[in-house]
Design a protein around this nucleic acid. Structure first.
Lengths: 206, 206
DNA sequence: GCACCAATCTAAACGGCGTCAAGATAATCT
DNA sequence: AGATTATCTTGACGCCGTTTAGATTGGTGC
């Protein structure tokens, strides 16, 4: 035996960790988060169900690697949005729109990213140097010209993050479809929602 | 056989649907969402693994029933918050705080509630009469004295909902612990974040 | 009071899952 | 070269959701 074409993959894969992460992302996009089992990933990569355990401690660790790549991709998306903001008048909203668009374009990946965060009760990746969280804080700092206390800066960053995440999770809800159409598309809807975010401070203490 | 104590539960349960939902909520609170398997629910209720299928089409339908009760509980929590708001100056923020507190006090239940919504891409329950969504909209309407267009009212409601949901999902993240302490507790932290929600419209077009 | 029917529950099985232990294979080091 | 180590497979375990077939019961019509 062991005949057939010489095309039989070698016993050792070469870079299975990489291949597994890619396979996972492929399954996520193609079949959604529910189909993302460790066995399915191994199948997709063409190895046995136990093979991944030589590269990841368990399923969770593989998902964390996938989530990490997701956060990196979000970082670059936000960097691009900041760079391409025409004038300074639209930096924050542009950033928020870019964030939600990323979630809308990568729904399964975004879900994995946040599921991992919830399980750990933390946002490790995006606190880094050029992490998404720091990018939001830096943008606010730029927009205010530094004229804001550290505490207010942190609170505004958190507020922005919460609003963007909340919108990211609901942007695809069917109930909003008519309103989106009324406003002339999803992007216009996004900007409109961001503009109304002040309602707590605006409508209270009246 | 068939002896022992007469305490043996009758073959027919009486109200198993109710018992299953209660068992599910008990497991959620005690062991978290990851432990919520249909078999575990049946075990907790003292019946065989197949018994639930005479009352729910599948696991999803049981979870939906649990989620529904969660939304009802949230509705009453928000109703209470609105009723007990001392002065009119704090209605919206009070509502937001109550929302996030509910999520913080029932984290596993809140997760089930939103997981079901995400799978259906819709928020069915809370759109009803006294549903949470309508309560937010009505409160905004009250606070503005009706001096706002229908579209703006809807957009403000969505914005409020997104912000509250985003904050609800992150309120327990460890990164915020120092800031919470600095501000004198979680409630103060919550109010402070809500006050900063206007950053998109405030810091842009400057 | 009783036969029947429908509702309800159990027992047993299926395939799929995450994970682990043992053994096969191949690359690397000496 | 031989030995060591990393990598992959096979096969198994217990748990999961779900289905099928059969047991048990409550209710209805006579």
């Amino acid at each position: 035996m062991t005949s057939a074409a010489p095309e039989t993959r070698p016993y050792h894969h070469g870079d299975l960790s990489r291949a597994l992460i890619d396979a996972a992302r492929r399954i996520l996009e193609r079949d959604g988060p529910a189909a993302l089992s460790l066995r399915a990933v191994a199948r997709e990569a063409g190895v046995s169900p136990a093979a991944p355990y030589h590269h990841f401690k368990d399923k969770n660790e593989l998902l964390e690697a996938v989530a990490h790549e997701g956060w990196v991709a979000l970082d670059t998306a936000l960097l691009t949005a900041r760079a391409s903001a025409a004038d300074a008048r639209d930096r924050m909203t542009g950033l928020g729109v870019a964030y939600v668009q990323f979630a809308r374009d990568n729904p399964a990946l975004y879900r994995v990213m946040y599921d991992r965060s919830r399980d750990k009760d933390a946002l490790p990746d995006q606190m880094k140097e050029e992490g998404a969280y720091c990018q939001v804080r830096n943008t606010i700092s730029e927009q205010t010209g530094g004229g804001v206390t550290d505490i207010d800066l942190e609170l505004a960053t958190i507020a922005a993050w919460c609003a963007a995440h909340g919108l990211a999770e609901m942007i695809s809800f069917k109930q909003f479809a008519p309103l989106k159409e009324l406003l002339g598309g999803e992007d216009a809807f996004l900007r409109a929602v961001f503009e109304h975010l002040g309602m707590f401070s605006k409508y209270d203490r009246g």
